[in-house]
Design a protein around this nucleic acid. Structure first.
Lengths: 340, 340
DNA sequence: ACTGTCACAGAAAGCCTTTTCGGGCGGTTT
DNA sequence: AAACCGCCCGAAAAGGCTTTCTGTGACAGT
């Protein structure tokens, strides 16, 4: 009855037996330790190859206390900002020897707690917490036995390690780009004022305008919602009230798309009459608008990669704490090409 | 010097010592085994609580040969189809006691191989392979010691377990919906003909038309690219050649968006004159179009959940192999509301 | 011929938990 | 009083691997 069992995956003992050595020697041979004669080593390696032996990382982890795993805790997988961060982190770890546990808390603190327990019982060596907004989030509760890095959404505790995008600087970059296109009467249209990102970009933009001796159109930032509809509406309002506007800095590509639609419908030529720059550099939007949309890219994969690197350093004991803000970059497309 | 070490996470031995029992008893108490007096059990549990003891899943896994982990292998994380599938799978496993290793092969076979090795050495109990297109993909090479389930992109080997969306049926659903809206002269505009999904939806649509004694406008499916631009262009062409067209079934929401723009620009009223239905039910597109877009949802999270369930069954030995095609559903919005 | 050195292989401990088995102990049956 | 029975608890093994320590044989030096 008990025949035809699945051929149990080979263990080091099997390899050692086949090669005619002890398991100690086999281990040393496979791991490139020194005290093995070359001839013995090849014999062991051949045996391992023949049995398609794969060392049991679980057993190894148990022994030396290092599992080579980390936890990636996201608050909501559907948020499109989490994904690139997550990709960057996965990439950075995968290139090393580290495997990544993925957990989605779905914005639920209970579930988050549950996942943390599970991860700790699996003896992950560290945790990356990926948020979906740049608003600071409460740090994980209980002092954990492993280092934690917060990515995209920084921790409220400034002593924690947090990696995020520099939205203030990005606001300045966007304005500088419009200024470089020869624009002077620039409006800033963005989303929900309760988002830290909206505030930061706004203050960066205002500072950049002041530095140039200018002021935003209307003397203010137009906060609203992160939607095309808001972009459409506010753009037509601005065209109406400030007909000499010649540049739009939009807080998201969705808003920018609405703005572009509005501008086209009112007969304005982008980029001849007006330059438009969006935010997020979301391909599906930037490359499908007419004209294609210049946008600010937050380098989110880079945020993920740096977060992974910082976690790695923290695991190795060389921890640098605090919030690290990474620079954004402008991706230029048709909507902001200077036309003489 | 070596003082102030991080307080090593508590082990069962610590708990046992604190409770004044042997580790065997402690284990039994914690795991709810029977042969422990109630009084002893509470003493152990208190000790465990006090030390914030978390059982070492690694050691447990080593002992009983069951690690409670699976691998989630995606070919490209940025593909927006992978994400919901992945979410569904993560959800289904997370609810149980299974943790998920995430690996992104980035469409590279070498990297895929590397990840598989790593996962196997971590002794995952199964693998879910998530593709980014519904075209069948070559199965994983080498006979793996664990079951594999293919999600979204089925395996080329029909004996493997594959879960995907039923695109043929979805094509029929879309047409039936347009027919139910009272449309008769329906055009089908879709993307790249080399995509299996495009072919399947097309043949489902054609069959549904035949069943109704009708024929698609132009007697054919208009294959092109998965872009707004294609949607715009082909829509205006169709309006020109077949001015009495009264329904558009689009192979993607992006194409649908282009079609909608084109219709609006040519003065057609959606949904009064023409009904439009998209595909993918991608929120950023469906809710931002004017009017909002009816679309076919592939229930990708469901695909992920079912894949997880099938993998679970396969791990437990009750495997049902073959391709399982899950139904899609229509999400009705303004673009296809019948107007008297 | 004896000691010392060196290169290599093996024995065994240890990581942390689960589980089986055996033993001590108080009470019951013949 | 002897045998027996349950109830709890502890000792020990197992799981696969790494590492340290010990042991062995060959060889050179004296």
């Amino acid at each position: 009855m008990a025949s035809a069992e699945t051929p149990r995956t080979a263990t080091l003992t099997d390899v050692a037996r086949l090669a005619g050595v002890s398991i100690a020697t086999a281990s040393k041979a496979i791991n490139g330790r020194a005290q093995v004669r070359a001839e013995t080593r090849t014999r062991v390696l051949e045996a391992a190859e023949q049995l398609s032996f794969a060392p049991n990382a679980v057993a190894r982890g148990l022994l030396q206390g290092r599992t080579g795993t980390v936890g990636l805790l996201t608050s909501d997988l559907e948020g499109r900002f989490s994904i690139p961060v997550l990709m960057g982190a996965e990439d950075a770890f995968g290139a090393g020897q580290v495997s990544v546990f993925l957990c989605d808390a779905r914005g639920d603190a209970i579930r988050e707690q549950h996942h943390i327990r599970a991860l700790l019982s699996r003896r992950v060596e560290g945790l990356i917490v990926v948020g979906s907004r740049t608003d600071p989030r409460p740090p994980l509760t209980g002092d954990l036995p492993v280092p934690v890095v917060y990515a995209y959404a920084p921790s409220e505790n400034p002593a924690d390690i947090s990696i995020t995008a520099n939205n203030v600087e990005a606001g300045g970059l966007a304005i500088d780009h419009l200024l470089a296109c020869g624009r002077r009467r620039i409006a800033h249209v963005t989303g929900d004022a309760s988002y830290q990102a909206a505030q930061d970009r706004s203050s960066g933009a205002q500072q950049a305008m002041r530095d140039a001796g200018l002021e935003l159109v209307g003397g203010r930032t137009f906060f609203g919602s992160w939607s095309e509809g808001w972009g459409r509406g506010v753009a037509s309002m601005i065209l109406d009230q400030y007909p000499d506007v010649d540049g739009f800095f939009c807080g998201s590509d969705q808003i920018a798309r609405g703005v572009l639609d509005s501008l086209r419908e009112s007969g304005r030529d982008v980029p001849r009459d007006i330059s438009v720059i969006g935010f997020d550099n979301w391909a599906v939007l930037t490359t499908n608008t007419r004209p294609q949309l210049t946008s600010v890219d937050m380098n989110l994969e880079q945020v993920g990669r740096i977060a992974a690197r910082r976690l790695f350093e923290a695991i190795e004991g060389r921890a640098a704490s605090g919030i690290e803000e990474l620079p954004c970059r402008i991706v230029t497309r048709e909507s902001s090409i200077p036309v003489p």
